[in-house]
Design a protein around this nucleic acid. Structure first.
Length: 813
DNA sequence: ATACCGTAGGACGACT
DNA sequence: AGTCGTCCTACGGTAT
């Protein structure tokens, strides 16, 4: 028997005649292989009345195959406080049939929908991305079915398995590929040939093509078939195959072309699997991890880690890596390849290569983060990169619950999901600000407010309204109370993660300070914890969550509202004026008070708070601006601050919104800057006038006028046809492919006086330079963006306009 | 996840 | 019949 240590990469199973056999793909230094675990079988949990019922089930035959359960075992696991039995099956398909039958007989079942391979990872607390230590035996399979290994026709079987902690990312080979294809009239996956492909990995960078002219950096192949075969061979050398939108494009495309060209597109000897994943696809590979970097970017955008308007590789390259990347459009690709023009082809080769390079770089930079999430949740990297944050929390909870012998609650029925969704939970408190310009502002906020409340008040579904009389003191303003004697699942996990994160952050900082090194792994570890910690509260209120708890989620926000309101009261008692507050932050007007006094105030508050909660000082600002709403009262969630160094912080205003044109946004920013840093409204007025003049002259470039809006549904599904929908409809009529999720960039063009804004909206690409409605951009973009700011300083609309007496506005443009 | 802001469209009645 | 202002709804996007 061999002892083996190797990197855990994938987990799957295969069916033989009698059994579903679990297998994992591991890799030691050079070689990867499948190893099988015969001891692990599919199962779910059930609660039985008595032994008689169990005997009855043991004797029962299920399904068309007339199979019986493999065994029913007692466990230490509990569900709803009751001891559960494990009901074990030979095959996954048996489990699927039997879980229906169990339900029909009225037996309570649990965790019956946990996929077999996921089950294996949870039960053994294995962590993909970490090493595993195994005892392995090489055997000939009884049926004579042989499994090729390096040593011969033997199958490797696991006798024991454990994870080993460490950072082993270096042991995996990462490589990216990208295809350029011929664009036909109508797009259909695989309909047209692949013209070019690039492959970028740790070891090499290649661009392949055929038939066209050979240019520098291009490797010439005989034909498309050889291209497909070459790429197939190359990417089979990788452990992590990275694409950009390979779930929906590159992989399905390769498969289709391989079929057409009568060749094979196999990864590890197996066909790729295209699985439905919500609304789009996920491509799964055997024994390798397909990392779709586009999914990574989507997740980073959701968690607010990156903020780009579009998620195409050009925007990502520029916004995330600070490197300009040229876009080559489909028609140019066709042209370059067909013409064989050396200049055009060189540009295409470069484009194709950069696509793979950026894709590869996304993986290199962000995979450490996902590997850490993978370890925390015991999921494969491929699944982690496609998971929502709620799924991550749920996976973490299932893993941790299992270690505590707790069975997960079942997923809610659709009916419950509906009632949950229809009854939203009261959220945070936002204090109405004082409009106007303010000096010397201190901003305080609670560190990790929701997680710290969950820990402090021991908020968890099992600790809710416990039977102890003394716990009734730990009561929320909702009237719900939580046990103070036994720590709940949620607080326990969160507390551990919060402490761990602080430790990691300190370690990271120390290393940076002392050695000057930027330890990416340490950073990724704390980042992974941050993402999950920030998602726990959302999970409690997520309608599809197994551990959904309206009471818990509601208690968290109730306490949060209480704490911020108490802080505001406290500050006022100490002689501060409270300018504003939102959820966990409080803005104080210092008014002659010193920074030290603010610090002392924070200290005082902290003495009144539970140990795990902390009010921190976010910063001091020289000036701040809040504005009046159109309908009166001061606007919440919109303000601008400037610190002592002159750094501007603009929140909520048009400047930070994508659905306003650049001309308006930049003018607004300039106005804010002039007002806040120099207290110079006259200069601001001049600047506004300058922009207006430029608009009137007709010389404003169209890229300054484009308005970005996401098409959130199919055009026909809109009740109200706004400008972006109108622009989309016109573009579709011209043959442009648009649908849900398309980012639209449109311009309000010149038109007759009666036309509505929608009538004049056209996608940017169909608009000539200079064709814009100056009146619209002045009246509906620039002026609204600056007017409410200037109003706070006593300026009117007329003051902003040259001369102040404008007659026929429609004369413009 | 909830809280919040602001635009454009569209219905409606008053007025010309 | 056309125009104008008011009120409401639909919609997108942001803060935390």
């Amino acid at each position: 028997m061999d002892k083996v240590k190797a990197l855990l990469i994938d987990v799957s199973y295969e069916d033989d005649e009698n059994n579903s056999v679990l297998k994992i793909f591991v890799k030691d230094k050079n070689e990867g292989c499948w190893v099988y675990d015969n001891s692990f079988h599919p199962y779910f949990y059930a609660i039985f009345y008595d032994e008689k019922e169990i005997e009855k089930i043991r004797g029962m035959k299920f399904g068309e195959e007339k199979f019986s359960v493999l065994e029913i075992k007692e466990t230490k696991m509990t569900a709803q406080g009751k001891k559960a039995h494990k009901v074990v099956f030979r095959k996954v398909s048996h489990l699927v049939q039997a879980r229906k039958d169990f339900h029909d007989i009225g037996i309570k079942r649990f965790e019956y929908d946990v996929p077999f391979s996921k089950r294996y990872l949870f039960d053994n607390a294995l962590e993909p991305g970490n090493f595993v230590e195994m005892e392995i035996e090489e055997v000939k399979t009884p049926k004579g079915k042989l499994y090729e290994t390096k040593k011969g026709a033997l199958r490797r079987e696991i006798k024991s398995i454990n994870k080993i902690d460490g950072d082993f990312f270096e042991n995996a080979v990462v490589g990216a590929f990208d295809l350029e294809t011929w664009s036909g009239k109508k797009f259909e996956v695989g309909a047209e040939p692949i013209l070019m492909a690039s492959v970028v990995s740790d070891n090499e960078k290649k661009v392949y093509s055929y038939e066209t002219k050979k240019v520098k950096g291009m490797e010439m192949l005989a034909d498309e078939k050889e291209l497909v075969d070459t790429v197939t061979k190359k990417i089979n050398e990788f452990d992590f195959i990275v694409t950009y939108n390979g779930d929906n494009f590159d992989f399905p495309y390769m498969k289709k072309r391989a079929d057409k060209l009568k060749t094979k597109f196999l990864i590890n000897g197996e066909e790729i699997r295209v699985k439905r994943h919500g609304l789009d696809n996920a491509v799964e590979l055997e024994g390798k991890q397909h990392i779709d970097a586009y999914q990574i970017m989507k997740l980073l955008q959701r968690t607010g880690s990156v903020n780009t308007v579009k998620l195409d590789l050009e925007s990502v390259s520029e916004k995330v890596f600070g490197v300009y990347k040229e876009k080559v459009f489909p028609s140019e690709i066709n042209d370059a390849w067909k013409s064989g023009d050396a200049k055009k082809l060189t540009r295409l080769v470069d484009y194709n290569l950069k696509d793979s390079e950026v894709t590869y770089k996304i993986a290199k930079d962000f995979l450490p983060l996902f590997i850490e999430i993978s370890k925390l949740t015991s999921q494969t990297l491929a699944d982690t990169t496609r998971a929502t944050t709620s799924q991550m929390v749920e996976d973490l909870l299932m893993k941790e619950a299992h270690l505590r012998c707790v069975i997960a609650p079942n997923k809610p029925h659709e009916g419950d999901v509906k009632t949950r969704t229809e009854n939203p939970i009261k959220g945070a408190f936002v204090k109405e600000p004082m409009a106007g310009l303010h000096e010397q502002i201190a901003v305080l906020d609670f560190a990790s407010l929701y997680p710290s409340i969950i820990i402090s008040h021991n908020i968890s579904p099992e600790t809710l309204n416990c039977s102890h009389a003394e716990c009734k003191k730990n009561v929320s303003s909702d009237g719900t109370y939580f046990c103070t004697k036994e720590k709940g699942l949620f607080p326990e996990i969160i507390e551990r993660m919060l402490k761990q994160r602080l430790k990691l952050k300190a370690e990271y900082k120390k290393k940076k300070k002392e050695k000057g090194t930027d330890d990416k792994i340490l950073f990724a570890k704390q980042w992974a914890l941050k993402i999950i910690l920030n998602s726990v509260y959302g999970y409690l209120g997520y309608a599809r969550a197994r551990w959904y708890s309206r009471e818990c989620a509601s208690a968290v926000t109730a306490w949060a509202r209480g704490y911020i309101q108490e802080t505001i009261k406290h500050a006022e008692k100490e002689g501060f004026k409270v300018l504003y507050g939102d959820t966990d932050s409080t803005f104080l007007l210092m008014n002659k008070k010193t920074k030290k006094e603010v610090e002392e105030f924070a200290e005082k508050v902290n003495k009144t708070l539970p140990d795990t909660m902390e009010l921190e000082i976010d910063g001091f600002y020289k000036r701040g601006l809040f504005v009046t709403k159109r309908e009166g009262g001061a606007a919440k969630k919109r303000y601008a601050l400037i610190d002592e160094k002159g750094n501007l912080k603009i929140v909520g205003f048009e400047y930070v919104r994508r659905d306003w044109c650049n001309a308006a946004k930049e003018t607004q920013k300039k106005v804010i800057e002039l007002v806040l840093s120099q207290g110079n409204p006259e200069e601001a007025v001049k600047f506004v006038r300058k922009t207006i003049e430029e608009l009137k002259s007709g010389a404003m470039p169209k890229k300054e006028l484009a308005i970005m809006t996401l098409l959130q549904r199919e055009p026909k599904d809109y009740d109200s046809i706004g400008p972006h929908v109108a622009a989309a409809e016109k573009a579709i009529a011209r043959g442009k492919q648009l649908g849900v999720g398309s980012m639209l960039s449109f311009i309000i063009t010149k038109g007759n006086e009666k036309a509505s804004i929608s009538d004049k909206a056209e996608l940017e690409e169909f608009v000539e330079e200079g064709n814009y409605d100056a009146n619209y951009y002045i009246e509906n973009q620039v002026l609204p963006a600056v007017i409410r700011i200037m109003q706070e300083l006593g300026y009117s609309r007329e003051d902003l306009l040259q001369g102040g007496k404008q007659t026929g506005l429609s004369a413009w443009g």
